[in-house]
Structures are given as structure tokens and as C-alpha cells.
Nucleic acid binder design. Structure first.
Lengths: 218, 218
DNA sequence: GCCGGAATCCACCAAATGGTTGACGCCGGG
DNA sequence: CCCGGCGTCAACCATTTGGTGGATTCCGGC
């Protein structure tokens, strides 16, 4: 009775890699693959019908196309209430952004790994997830702890949204139009943001937000 | 006589995936793997000593640790002059950023693929590279053509320096002090930078410079 | 030897941004 | 039930930024 895994990633190369690595481990089988969240939900049902439901979902958080990882995680976890199988979801992604991690954890993910993780970290995480335990990559755990130790005044969701638009290079007026609020409100938000980030202008706010991984610069 | 490939990528998962995919193709063998550019050069020499030099190098452009892809490509391609084996370099990466593509091509890469490419595109590209031909992903080719149609003026070294400080969040006065120039000069530089980047304010300049990989956001 | 680009500087004016104070409705925790 | 945080808006003012049109030096290429 091997651990049955559902792979969800939009990169064929990564799927092949995970399949190769996982099937090399004792007691693990890749039961199915999906390229995005929607396909993942379908596969989950299909496996259920076959009488061999997935034990763990291993999923990328950001997928270029289709339903994204956070949404998919929420959907999968919420199946429990309906009496359907809701396997633990393990996130495997490239970035360790605060916002991403938090979103994943809130959505009910039971682990968060980085793609450059060594294979045995991957193995350990899958085992932990299958056993109902939680597994965070050291880097991710460190980041969460750091959060707790140095409680940085958190930006409100609205403020994060502002910062994202800031980083786009939009002016206050343009931001106001985007969000359907007045320019005055934008300025108020900015003042709050500056205070929370400990800066005094918009470019510094972007720099600080990037450093704190509140936003991601590609 | 199979095509011998050297894999260079810092993600174990991706290496495993490429290895799995490539060894599934007729006439291709993964001769060795490396996690960064420095290791790749060592492997190249090692394979040479074994009497079975690599025919193609398949490399990620951005590597978190160690020598990066562009540097490695330059080094590999420049071996030809020394009479050492200089196999064609195929870039396989996540982003299709203008600056990245250009840097890779200038460094002598003979192909540029995206990681979400379907396996047979990968296969075709490796075959092309081994045959001494060039292979660009359609998206990449389109981007290059666009570049040629709309040539983008390059920033001068001094201007790049300005942009770097800009992204730090410094004001004009602070930048002027940092560079030991007058505030007026800073403003002049900024006007030039805006013109070259096609923007009209400093935050947009940062966004654009980041997008073009003129500066790197951590 | 002339031309152009890079880098430096100045002045002036218009516009955007930042800082302050005050205000309102909503919601959730103590 | 009251307080505090969030999100919204307004008016006012100081500062910073952006835009324009010059000017100078230095350098390298044609």
C-alpha cells in the first residue's frame, strides 16, 4: 500500500522530474498528473471512482494557465465537508514570498517546499503529509518564525493591493481609477503604508515591500 | 552514436525531469549533470578526458547559486579558440525577458527554450543544436523580431547606476550626494532615462528597468 | 577637425507627490 | 457598548518631481 500522489504543475519538465524522483522512492506512486487546478480536481474524482483515491496532492502554487494553486488548494480542502476525499496538499514552488506562503497556509496547505529542495527533503515532506503531519522547508519555516519574532506591522489586504499597483509605476490618479476610489483615499493609504514600512516615499516603499517579499518583482 | 547532453540546472527536480524526458528520446543520452556554471565547466573537461565529450549543453539561465548561465555560456563558447571542445549551448529557462534572451544570444547560445515547452519542442531543439543549427521557441523568436522592429536604446553605464539607486528608494538629493554630482544633473539623467525606457516617472522607470532586467530585484 | 554622445551643470515653471488634520461608516473584540 | 482598525473622502500646504531649454567639457569616430 504505496502512497498515491497527484502531481499538479504546468511544466511538463517538472512533472517528469517529480515523477522520476518520487517513483524512485520506496512506497510512493504517482497516481496521476494535472497541468492546472481544474484538471487536478477532475483527476481527484477520477481516482476516487477507480477506488484508489490520492493520498497526497503535490502542487505548484503559480500556474500560468487555468486555475491557480491557492484556489485549487481551497477547493480541495473544502471537499472534506462534503464527505469527498480531501487529501493533504503539499505546495512545491519556486518562490518563498511571504504573501505566497501565507496564502497557501491559509488555504489549508499542509506543507511548503521550494523547487530547489534536495530530493530527500521532498521525500520527507510527502511522508509527513501522508501521515497527516505538516512539513515546511527550512527556509520557509525560518521566514515564518522571523515573522513572529519581528512582528512587522502587517499591511492590510487593501494596502498590499496599493503596493502592487505602486510597483507597476502608476501615479496616484491612475491607481485611484484602477481601484474605483478617490485620489485622496489613495494618498491616505500611501501614508499608512509609508508608516508601516518605515519609509517616506513611494519608491522606497516599493524597495522595502520587495525586500520583505510583500510583493514579488519578476 | 547517441547525442551526449550535459544538463546544467540548480533544481534537482528539473534535472531529474530533463533526464527522464531526454532519455526517453531515441538517440539522446544525458552524459552528466551540474548544478551551476562552474560545475558545468568541470564536467565538460571530465567528459573530454573520458573521451566522450558532450555534444550539447542544456542549461538554465538563472541559477541561484554559483556562476550564472550567461557567464557559463560565454566561457563555454570561448573554449573554441583554445582548441578545447565547445559544444553548442541550449538555454532552457522560465522567463522570456528581452534582456535575458539578448544576453544569451550575445553570449553565443544556439537556442532558447521556455520551461513550459512541450517535450517534442525540447527534442527538436536538442537535435537542431547537435546539428549545429539554431532553435528558438516561437515566443522567443517573436520577441526578438519585435526587438529588431522597435530597437530599444541602451542606457549608459552612468544611467544604469542612477537606476540602481532609484530602485533603492532614494530621492534626487540623496542620489546626488551618493554620486557627488548636483541635483540638477540627477534630474537631467532621469529625463534621459525616462525617454529611453519610454516612461514618465521614477517608479515606472524602476518597473520597466526590472522588466528589462537592467536591474535585478532580489 | 568636426560631430555626436556622455556627463556635468543652471534656471524656471508646472505638476505630482507627501504630510497634516479632520471626518464618516463599518465591523469585530474586549 | 465602546474602542480601534480599516477603508473611504476632503482641504490645505510644503516639498519633490518632471519638463524645457539652454550651456560646458571631454572623448572617440568618421
Amino acid at each position: 500500500m504505496s502512497i498515491r500522489i497527484l502531481l499538479v504543475d504546468d511544466h511538463p519538465v517538472v512533472r517528469a522530474g517529480l515523477r522520476a524522483l518520487l517513483s524512485g522512492f520506496e512506497g510512493m506512486t504517482v497516481a496521476a498528473e494535472a497541468a492546472d487546478g481544474a484538471a487536478a480536481l477532475k483527476e481527484l474524482d477520477r481516482l476516487q471512482l477507480l477506488g484508489e483515491p490520492a493520498d497526497v496532492v503535490l502542487m505548484d502554487l503559480q500556474m500560468g494557465t487555468g486555475m491557480d494553486g491557492v484556489a485549487a488548494t481551497t477547493r480541495i480542502r473544502s471537499r472534506e465537508a462534503a464527505g469527498e476525499p480531501a487529501p493533504p496538499v503539499l505546495i512545491l514552488t519556486t518562490y518563498d514570498t511571504d504573501a505566497d506562503i501565507l496564502a497557501a497556509v491559509e488555504a489549508g496547505a499542509s506543507g511548503y517546499l521550494l523547487k530547489d529542495a534536495p530530493p530527500d527533503q521532498l521525500r520527507a515532506a510527502v511522508l509527513a503529509a501522508a501521515a497527516g503531519r505538516t512539513a515546511l522547508a527550512p527556509e520557509v519555516a525560518a521566514r515564518l518564525l522571523d515573522r513572529i519574532r519581528h512582528p512587522q506591522p502587517a499591511l492590510s489586504p487593501r494596502e498590499v493591493q496599493l503596493v502592487e499597483l505602486l510597483a507597476t509605476g502608476l501615479g496616484n490618479r491612475a491607481i485611484a481609477r484602477q481601484l474605483f476610489i478617490s485620489e485622496a483615499t489613495v494618498k491616505t493609504h500611501l501614508v499608512h503604508i509609508y508608516a508601516k514600512l518605515g519609509v517616506d516615499n513611494r519608491t522606497a516603499a516599493i524597495a522595502e515591500a520587495t525586500k520583505r517579499r510583500i510583493i514579488r518583482a519578476q
